[in-house]
């Protein structure tokens, strides 16, 4: 019993990190209808940025700050170069443009770091609560994911810029008529989405070894989590991530790990078909 509960707890904690990654994806979709296929590559890039700062002597948790800043800047640049021009075109164009970005990131990353695994070696404490053992790294990553999410909500609902983002998400033309510079807002949104993806990558890097290709798995998990919560709905994405983590945690003791992916994707396609606005409703 303790084993199952432990597994479920582990799932919940990692689910929060999935949720953070999914928020990055869903925010961009919600505001500009772009499914960012560079999401996985950006997550992987977050892992390696953390690795670089860690290598330069920064504590991994301190290094999250410069990773966030870099992530934002990187996102704005990607938007300006690859997305801006085709944002009003058919969905195929933005899917392919962001996929091209993904190829470029992975290509450069492979040239720099090859595809062999890296990890962040730092001091981790282990705690024991009534027989459930958990590392500080897991706890911190979950707490950090929650804090970043709160930060995002504060930004979206309490700041002028955040309100402008929501206005553009709601109706780009109307927002422009009200004098909101929509192009800048879209660039900022892409920056924030990218930042969240990189942060989630950085947090994952404190937990598991990683390669430049590791992002793919988390990209797919982000899709599943966002769709569970309703594409475009950040709160939904966080809960989607938690649900995903809980599913993984609760089935892990009973079946082979390799089957969890099958279950996830069947749920994914099923949700798309039968609840296209996600489990919690929301925008379509």
């Amino acid at each position: 019993m303790v084993e199952i509960l432990s597994s479920v707890m582990d799932g919940l904690l990692i689910g929060l990190v999935y949720g953070l990654a999914a928020i990055g994806l869903t925010l961009i979709f919600g505001v500009m209808d772009v499914v960012n296929l560079a999401h996985g590559a950006i997550i992987a890039l977050g892992m390696f940025f953390l690795y670089l700062f860690f290598g330069a002597g920064l504590h991994p948790y301190l290094a999250l700050l410069p990773v966030a800043v870099l992530g934002f800047i990187f996102g704005v640049i990607v938007y300006q170069i690859a997305v801006r021009k085709i944002i009003s075109g058919p969905p195929l164009m933005s899917l392919l443009a962001t996929f091209a970005v993904s190829m470029i990131i992975i290509g450069v990353g492979t040239a720099l770091w090859s595809t062999s695994p890296y990890n962040i070696n730092f001091k981790v404490t282990t705690y024991n609560f009534f027989g459930y053992t958990v590392t500080s790294a897991r706890l911190v990553s979950a707490v950090a994911a929650v804090l970043v999410t709160f930060g995002l909500y504060y930004f979206l609902y309490r700041t002028v810029l955040g309100k402008a983002v929501r206005a553009v998400a709601n109706n780009r033309e109307a927002a422009e008529l009200m004098g909101i510079p929509s192009q800048q807002i879209l660039a900022i949104t892409f920056g924030i989405g990218t930042m969240l993806a990189m942060l989630s990558g950085a947090l994952i890097a404190t937990l598991f070894p990683f390669t430049i290709l590791s992002g793919g798995v988390y990209e797919l998990k982000s899709f599943v989590a966002s769709v569970l919560g309703g594409l475009g709905n950040p709160t939904g994405a966080l809960f989607g991530g938690i649900i995903l983590g809980l599913i993984e945690g609760s089935v892990a003791p009973f079946i082979q790990v390799s089957w969890t992916n099958v279950i996830e994707f069947v749920i994914f396609v099923g949700i798309l078909l039968f609840f296209p606005t996600g489990l919690f409703g929301g925008r379509k």
């Binding site: 979709f29 209808d33 499914v35 058919p90 969905p91 195929l92 899917l95 797919l220 899709f223 599943v224 769709v227 594409l231 390799s258 089957w259 992916n261 099958v262 994707f265 069947v266 994914f268 396609v269 798309l272 078909l273 296209p276």
Partner: peptide, 20 residues
């Protein structure tokens, strides 16, 4: 029945589900 990005995502999901 899905359109645009939703269809694209579903086709990715189908391929990954079948692969797994």
């Amino acid at each position: 029945r899905l359109r645009g990005a939703y269809f694209a995502l579903a086709t990715i999901g189908v391929n990954e589900a079948v692969k797994d």
